[in-house]
Amino acid sequence: MKLIGVRTPGTDDTRIAVTEGHGKATVLTTLQGFWADPARWLANEPADGQLLSTEDVRIVPPVLPEARVICIGLNYHAHAAEGSYKDQELPPHPTLFARWTQSLSVDGVPAPVPANEAGLDWEGEIAAYIGRPLVDADAETARKAVVGYSTFNDLTSRVAQKLTSQWILGKNGDNSGPLGPLVTADEVGDLREGLRVQTRVNGTTVQDGNTKDMIYDLGETLSLISRTFTLRPGDIICTGTPEGVGYARTPQWLLQPGDVVEVEVDKLGVLTTPIVGNDYRYGATR
């Protein structure tokens, strides 16, 4: 089952719908209603929900405004080797940073290059959605709490990211966190079994990795987080990117206005983001 957020033009009310393909979607319930009890809504195929044409609604992330979006940095061996840990021992715990939900977008929404950046960097990856509360959870319990996954692109403003040791500024540009539809966990399986993660820029493959190369297991990372704060339904963890990012190349290669970046993940589909100039930020309706 693939889920999207839909919003009728002129309203701020988001609903969760099942994509039927061919431009059709069936409404399940409200955004808040879904995340209050995801298991209930995923237990059966939709039968009586309103059938919509996706051309008549605005597609938005299926994400609660108050959700925590937690990202893992340097979570693939090859990516860590091309970056901060080329000649260093890997740390025992993952580097975690936060995104705000306001930075999230969906397939096809343009991402602007901020004024003080030479371009944006791509980071194709997988986002995982939490479906029930986790408090001091063990790794296996945490894995079972994941209700679904999306393709994700952690588009990064490298100048802002590297101003300090804290990454949040560079990771929260406008529309810099595009998400694909939420694909339910039963259709995806365990990331440890291996999913191919690819990123393309203008049709050229720039990343081609596999989740088997992850350093920090998703379940163990969720377990670690849950020992400090409660993870709640609707929270998201973004699992890191493979090698091949633009800043690590010689010469450096960054996304420019007019470029199109795609992230493709096995079982999750293709996520496409056009890159635009900074003037898009002024007057664009989000």
Rank of each mutant, 00 (worst) to 15 (best):
M1W: 06
K2R: 15
K2Y: 12
G5V: 03
V6N: 00
R7L: 10
T8V: 10
P9Y: 05
D12K: 15
I16F: 03
V18G: 00
G23D: 09
A25C: 10
A25W: 01
L28M: 06
L28Y: 05
T29G: 07
G33E: 11
W35R: 02
P38D: 05
A39W: 13
A39F: 08
W41S: 01
P46C: 12
D48C: 15
Q50L: 08
L52K: 09
L52T: 12
S53P: 01
D56G: 13
I59Q: 12
V63T: 13
L64W: 00
L64F: 00
P65R: 10
E66K: 12
V69C: 02
V69H: 03
I70G: 00
C71H: 04
C71D: 01
C71W: 08
G73R: 14
N75W: 04
Y76F: 09
H77G: 12
H77Y: 15
A78K: 14
G83W: 08
Y85E: 07
Q88V: 04
Q88D: 09
E89P: 07
L90M: 04
P92C: 01
W100P: 07
V106D: 01
V109C: 00
P112Y: 02
V113N: 00
P114Q: 04
A115L: 15
A115E: 13
N116L: 12
E117R: 04
G119N: 05
G119E: 05
G119W: 02
L120K: 00
E123Q: 14
A127T: 12
A127Y: 04
Y129S: 13
V135D: 12
A137Y: 06
A139E: 09
E140F: 13
A142W: 00
Y149K: 11
Y149L: 11
S150V: 08
S150N: 12
S150F: 09
T151W: 02
V159L: 11
V159M: 08
A160E: 08
L163C: 09
W167C: 08
L169V: 15
K171V: 09
P178F: 02
P178C: 06
L179C: 06
G180I: 10
G180V: 07
V183C: 08
D186G: 12
E187N: 10
L191S: 04
E193W: 10
L195C: 04
R196Y: 02
V197W: 03
T199A: 14
T204E: 15
T204C: 08
T204L: 09
Q207E: 04
N210A: 13
T211R: 07
D217M: 04
L218H: 03
L218R: 02
E220D: 15
T221M: 11
L224T: 10
I225K: 04
I237H: 00
C238I: 15
T239E: 00
T239K: 03
L254K: 11
L254D: 06
L255K: 05
P257T: 14
G258W: 02
G258F: 06
V260E: 08
V263W: 11
E264G: 03
V265F: 00
D266A: 08
G269C: 14
T272S: 12
T273S: 11
I275P: 01
V276K: 00
V276L: 00
R281N: 03
R281T: 06
A284V: 15
